[in-house]
Computed example of a mutant assay.
Amino acid sequence: MVKKQTESSAVTEPNFEAAMAELEGLVQRMEGGELSLEDSLKEFERGVKLTRLCQAALKVAEQRVKVLSADGQESDFAAQGDV
């Protein structure tokens, strides 16, 4: 887990894989239809936060791939192997 320091206290955020696993469980609970409206809203709010965390992690990974590529340009890696 990654710790994120805030002004008031340290908040622990899950890594990408843990966030995805939590999202999958959250979706299953919501699709089960057994949650109250209030619980559904709390789960939805948590899902939005997890989704944003995952999107940010993917953006960082994409930037790293661009930096590591030969020219830093976006490219179709599968097409390069066909040349």
Rank of each mutant, 00 (worst) to 15 (best):
C54M: 15
L26T: 03
K66Q: 13
Q5A: 09
F44P: 00
E31S: 11
G81M: 10
G81K: 13
L68M: 12
D71F: 09
V65A: 14
L35D: 12
K66N: 06
E31M: 09
E31I: 00
S36N: 01
A21R: 10
E74C: 01
S36Q: 01
L26N: 15
G81W: 04
D82Q: 14
G81V: 05
S9W: 05
Q80G: 01
S8F: 14
K59Q: 10
G33N: 07
S36M: 05
L23Y: 07
Q73L: 10
V67K: 15
S9Y: 11
L53W: 03
S8Y: 12
R52M: 08
V67T: 12
L58S: 07
Q5M: 10
L68C: 07
K42G: 01
K4R: 13
E22M: 13
L23C: 03
K3G: 02
A70K: 14
A61S: 10
E22W: 01
E7D: 11
V83E: 10
R64N: 11
F16V: 08
Q73A: 13
V2H: 09
E74Y: 08
E17P: 01
K49T: 04
Q73R: 15
Q73D: 06
K42Q: 12
R52C: 05
F44L: 12
R52K: 15
E45K: 14
K66S: 12
K59N: 08
A19Y: 07
E74G: 15
M1C: 04
N15I: 06
K49R: 14
D76K: 08
V60G: 02
P14A: 09
L53C: 04
K66P: 00
E24Y: 10
